[in-house]
Nucleic acid binder design. Structure first.
Lengths: 337, 337
DNA sequence: GGGATTCCTGAGAGCGCTCTCAGGTCGACA
DNA sequence: TGTCGACCTGAGAGCGCTCTCAGGAATCCC
């Protein structure tokens, strides 16, 4: 179907052209230090003459290593791609891996094929796996670690000792950072629109908020919950206002939730930050474009992805790595607080 | 490093257990019709007893086929992941491929390693490739098609005969659809905030708008441009209002651009759709959460991704496929128009 | 200067699977 | 009952690369 088959050049052909043995070519391709500079040069010349690229399959077969890392995305989380945070994590992973010799395998693991996925992963088709999920409580892939280096994105819900390596954002200090900023700004009545408490991120950010608020001796009862969408943010904001308790500061668990809160405040004729100072979370693209621009917590998701990738690679290399890696968080101050 | 090596079971082991030859096991694994039912049953039993999974590398090496499809994302477009449209395309691709025996390889092609990427693709490491880019004008991967089935996302800027297969959204009719809706609603002075004219999507949507506007005998000079961000949308809206020409309808090239326009209209005290009816483009998550909810054009990006995947697979199978595949577009009517 | 070391290279045996070819069995037909 | 096909199955030769092992050359030390 493809005209001339034009078989790709092989190690053998390179060897012939360079006048050396296959083994030697293999050595220079793998940067073995035991090859004379002249010979290596010869081989390199032959390689570029033929524009030779090692055949991955053959290499993998012979070396019992695949050089591929799977990125597993549970289907329920496929909306992952719609979430700028996860999208950035994926980007970070891909970017980091592009600099190594590893290749990224994107796997959507639907519930129906979960067994197929497990077998694929354990069947020697990949050297390691990265699992990205909204529900770190989702243990379907927890016990993969037995035979395969795995790194999770996000900490486990429970401190399960069997849970493998993971990289998470320091949500507690993120929540504290945001809240302290409001306090330092002079806010004395700080409310929060929190995320679901069945996910580590939501739990941790709330802990951070509570830490800061109680440390300052302020009221810690001004909490409403929402599920990260603008609509939920608006609803939560309404409930907050309905309490008829004066509020001068607001910490919102996501920028999107903040978008909803913004619109309600606007309707209510409240000025930001004049009446209520607002701090969001995520630092997504909207944070810098809304008006007033949103002060928010940046989590460096791209770096988080890169870190995950780096860790599997080290794990594959047999290194010992800390089970938990916590990424720092930083406050981006803009107009809203 | 991994405790017991616990070598995965091989074809050979399955054959031994089932009391048949390797060739026979291979036949049943590949569903060859020339195997007796009893023998096949025997083999299947052995396979599940050993929970055997074929080794991809070996299979690939022997069959000169990899069962992997690359998804190439030029780095300049890595923001692709931040763009809900592309994110959905990726999701569609992954979802579709998950149902086939193909595996998805995510490749970020940075400019610096573009040669490496090309060689990887042409080096027999993948059976086909999908290229997703904001700049379909980007010809770096145009001539890949010679030796590898490739499908592009988005049409080429110029009608280059050498450009391979592509799947695109029908932007012309999308623009027309949106504009006609405004006209049917009674708008007589319809402006547009268009996207950059160096990309097919921007060009085509504008053509669609112009088609509808001139067909109705309306003014076709109310055009301002922006680069798809809310900030640009706000700026363009201001320029539009500064023209001091009465406007009662607005077609915006993206929902995000619309977000910016919304804020400016609000500042100006204009009601939507009372004073100006607005139609966006993309149908992203914000469209349904802003207030008033946004009437917009839906492009079914997930389906587009699935279609791209389907086409490479067919191409790999040697089928003849139309060069261009145009995905339909539909109007989602909400409150803003 | 001779034997021991060290260093570099080549030979060759697989890695697990596919696929062609040949052989063997069985039913059909004369 | 003998012969010819049709149909299955097994044997075996690779696919392109890695890696161990051994041999030869160069280097070293006493």
């Amino acid at each position: 179907m493809m005209g001339t088959p034009a078989r790709s050049p092989t190690l053998e052909m390179v060897a012939a052209r360079a006048g050396v043995s296959r083994a030697t070519v293999s050595r220079v391709v793998n940067a073995s230090p035991t090859v004379t500079a002249e010979v290596a040069a010869l081989v390199h010349a032959a390689i570029s003459d033929l524009s030779y690229v090692p055949n991955r399959a053959a290499r993998s077969l012979a070396s019992r290593t695949t050089q591929v890392i799977a990125l597993v995305v549970p289907e329920s989380t496929a909306k992952v791609f719609a979430d700028p945070f996860f999208a950035s994590v994926v980007q970070g992973v891909a970017l980091h891996l592009a600099e190594t010799d590893y290749t990224l395998n994107l796997l959507i693991a639907s519930e129906t094929t979960s067994d197929k996925t497990r077998r694929y992963l354990l069947g020697g088709n990949v050297d390691g796996a990265l699992v990205v999920s909204h529900h770190s409580g989702d243990h379907s892939y927890t016990h993969l670690g037995q035979g395969l280096p795995v790194v999770f994105g996000g900490r486990p819900l429970s401190a399960d000792a069997l849970f493998g390596h993971y990289v998470d954002v320091d949500n507690v200090s993120g929540g504290r950072l945001a809240t302290r900023h409001l306090i330092e700004r002079g806010c004395r009545s700080i409310a929060t629109i929190a995320g679901p408490q069945d996910m580590p991120a939501g739990i941790d950010r709330l802990i951070g908020w509570r830490n800061a608020v109680t440390a300052a001796g302020l009221d810690e009862s001004l909490v409403e919950y929402g599920d990260y969408s603008p609509a939920d943010g608006a609803a939560a904001m309404r409930r907050l206002l309905d309490r008829r308790v004066p509020i001068d500061g607001l910490f919102v668990f996501s920028d999107q939730l903040a978008a909803g809160a913004y619109s309600v405040m606007r309707e209510a004729g409240l000025s930001i930050p004049g009446d209520i100072a607002v701090v969001g979370y995520d630092d997504d693209r909207y944070a810098s474009t809304v008006s007033p621009t949103l002060t928010t917590v940046n989590q460096a998701p791209v770096e988080m992805g890169a870190r995950m990738a780096e860790i599997v690679v080290r794990l594959i290399g047999g290194e010992q790595v800390e089970t938990a890696t916590i990424m720092p968080t930083k406050l981006v101050v803009r107009e809203s607080a």
